[in-house]
Nucleic acid binder design. Structure first.
Length: 639
RNA sequence: GGUCCGGUAGCUCAGUUGGAUAGAGCAUCAGCCUUCUAAGCUGAGGGUCAUUGGUUCGAAUCCAAUCCGGAUCACCA
């Protein structure tokens, strides 16, 4: 039981004893850490009881405080300040915590339970390299997996690779036409980047081919279009030429966009990509072979990047293998009457009663849409691992899609429905707006990693901290610092919030950063080295510890925060929010730095203080290390 | 237009069930290295918590309305 929970229980018992007729619920008791300007460790708010107990806050506080200090050895002192009961926790609680847990490698973690959770994250398309936005997804997914593990869950980290579809055909078409047989080897280019280059090339050509068609459409020439499109285009042009639309820039842009889409769909190269997709689905050998080759290049590139990022997966799903799933589920849904068929043969679900729209599940020609295959993979995942929960780490632009997915699964009575959970995160944007891979305005993931390593090296050299390291060690150190900074930067904010990243301003290595935490850890390790104490020492020399001198303020602040770690770890899992661990670790490092500045460990006033402080810093280092590790961030012993 | 999310210091963000004078970091200014790593520490300035009303002992937090920003509402994925 956490200390806060113990205080609540003690207070509830006390109130029950002091006011037998009263009905005090545990949930009415608010316990906070005491503000620094007051004496005490934790504070009970008295106001909620005033009315029911018909006591003035101060009188009530006196009764409650006296009772607690007298009857419960957890408390040694109390003070009342305007409606708040400030309690001082006995030193023995703190010293017990230290002696029992200062070298506990899994402090705050829960034993493994029979609860299976899948975290699906990363889930890239195979037509282009990973960008900055994917990094947020990868770090978030990895961290959540680790945090859930530390809370006792059995976690399967999964990656659903979107390896088929029109996007990869675009890269393939452009490669066929313009690459002249180029391979990653022949061009010395990372495979995912090579394929991505041809995706960009495709879009360049598409743009070139779209312009004249659009031009002709605006001149009333619809010869490029098929009959249906020509009809639609004519209507759009008519609407566009209305005076009230011409004056409204938003409306005009919208129509222009629709016309552009029509034009794009009738370019030669777009039609070629569509034809290639048809050939792929028909199993055309040559197309399949090229597809396999180019995907192979991309996987090679991805696996390098994943390795550098330090993320991993227990299970890979490939869309080419799962995109046909889901049809059976739809057929069953039709039989059950949950779904309905329209005249053209397309299958829909009516969600209007739930405040949503009708949603298409099978096209008129019987082919699947995105939702169909997601239904299928949801069931597949559930059957593969008997999941209690299935987490999808997906950007918030898909909130609606995920809401609909869960709802449809529920309506179909699929047992996996309950466990579906969308871990929705905000997109990473540039100061100029969203990143668009088609327009090449993305911040590339590999470039970003390189930039961070460069920054780590530059700042380490500037600070003159390279002495005593081999080249090999330095390389590792820059990696630890650079990647740590990158991960922390992306994990330190609430996942739900979108974030703006300005590439011109490089990521800082000071202040609220991983570097700050790494530095505190390195300082601790340095002290331990000089004192010949292991980073994780055994109990010998500490288990007879007896404290006679009172805590210094900085010591107390540190130990109170160490004691809160289990609560933080649980909360990070419950809220699906690794940023809580980042804030916590930073705060802990801050408290350590203050403590370090004020008190000497090696030359402590007494042997007793030295022992106390060694336990304090060992435990601090351990929790810093562990909490950051769960976020995928390593802490060096020297920097 | 419907639905959902967001608006806190110049900037980036904390602030979980309502609790004390709203906190960090960056940036600015002023101090601190002969002593365990100054990538650090101490201090100062900086706020109409978008606006208005409501609920109550008490509201950044809950409710309502309004304003602003974003996402989404495809026989795309």
């Amino acid at each position: 039981m956490t200390l806060v929970a113990q205080i609540k229980c003690a207070a509830a018992d006390a109130l029950k004893h002091l006011f037998p007729e009263a009905d005090i619920q545990l949930s009415m008791i608010t316990v906070n850490q005491t503000k620094p300007e007051f004496t005490g460790d934790y504070t009970i708010v008295l106001f909620p009881f005033v009315k029911q107990l018909r006591q003035k806050p101060d009188v009530l506080g006196n009764q409650l405080g006296s009772y607690l200090v007298e009857k419960n050895e957890l408390f040694t002192e109390f003070q009342i300040v305007s409606g708040f009961l400030n309690l001082t926790i006995s030193d023995s609680y703190w010293t017990n915590l230290l002696v029992n847990h200062f070298n506990d490698a899994h402090f705050g973690e829960k034993p493994k339970q029979d609860r299976r959770v899948m975290v699906e994250y990363s889930s890239p398309n195979t037509n282009k390299p990973l960008h900055f936005g994917h990094l947020r997804n990868n770090f978030l997914g990895f961290a959540m997996g680790e945090i859930l593990k530390a809370n006792g869950n059995q976690v399967v980290k999964a990656n659903l690779i979107n390896d088929r579809g029109i996007h990869i055909c675009k890269s393939m078409i452009a490669w066929q036409r313009f690459a002249d047989g180029a391979t990653p080897e022949s061009t010395d280019t990372k495979g995912d980047h090579l394929v991505g280059d041809y995706y960009v090339k495709f879009n360049d050509i598409l743009k070139e081919q779209t312009a004249p068609i659009m031009d002709r459409i605006f001149h009333g020439d619809f010869d490029d279009l098929d009959a249906a499109a020509a009809d639609k285009a004519a209507k759009l042009i008519a609407a566009y030429n209305k005076p009230e639309v011409k004056d409204d820039k938003d409306k005009a842009d919208k129509i222009k966009g629709d016309i552009k889409e029509i034009a794009q769909n009738h370019t030669e190269i777009q039609l070629a990509a569509k034809e290639m997709l048809r050939q792929w689905e028909a199993g055309d050998l040559e197309v399949r072979k090229l597809w396999e080759t180019m995907n192979g290049w991309v996987y090679q590139g991805f696996s390098e990047t994943y390795k550098r990022l330090g993320v991993d997966f227990d299970k890979m799903y490939y869309e080419s293998e799962t995109y046909l799933l889901g049809k059976e589920i739809v057929v069953k849904g039709l039989e059950k009457g949950v779904l309905f068929k329209k005249e053209d043969g397309s299958v829909w679900i009516d969600l209007t009663a739930d405040g949503l729209d009708e949603k298409l599940l099978l096209r008129g020609d019987g082919t699947s849409v995105y939702m169909t295959q997601d239904l299928g993979t949801a069931v597949l995942k559930y059957n593969d691992f008997k999941l209690n929960q299935s987490i999808y780490v997906i950007a918030d632009e898909q909130n609606y899609h995920m809401q609909v997915l869960k709802l449809i699964l529920e309506k179909l009575g699929e047992p996996c429905a309950d466990g579906v959970f969308h871990l929705s995160y905000g997109m990473v944007e540039l100061p100029t707006g969203r990143m668009k891979s088609r327009e090449g305005t993305v911040v590339d993931a590999d470039d970003m990693i390189n930039e961070m390593l460069r920054l780590a090296q530059e700042q380490t050299e500037e600070a003159g901290k390279t002495e005593g390291f081999t080249q090999e060690e330095l390389k590792k150190l820059y990696n630890t610092i650079g990647l740590g900074a990158l991960k922390f930067y992306l994990l330190r904010v609430d996942p739900k919030k979108k974030m703006i990243f300005d590439p011109k301003e490089s990521i800082d290595l000071h202040g609220f950063t991983a570097t700050f935490i790494q530095y505190a850890h390195a300082r601790i390790c340095s002290i331990l080295r000089k004192e010949h104490v292991a980073v994780m020492p055994d109990n010998a020399g500490f288990h007879h510890f007896k404290m006679t001198a009172p805590f210094e303020k900085a010591e107390k602040d540190l130990i109170i925060t160490l004691d809160q770690y289990p609560m933080m770890l649980e909360s990070a899992a419950a809220e699906y929010n690794p940023s809580q661990l980042c804030s916590y670790a930073f705060h802990l490092a801050q408290l350590f730095n203050t403590f370090y500045d004020q008190h000497s460990i090696a030359n402590a006033e007494s042997e007793e203080k030295k022992q106390l402080r060694l336990m304090l810093i060992v435990m601090t280092a351990q929790i810093l290390r562990r909490s950051m590790k769960l976020c995928g961030i390593n802490l060096p012993e020297k920097m």
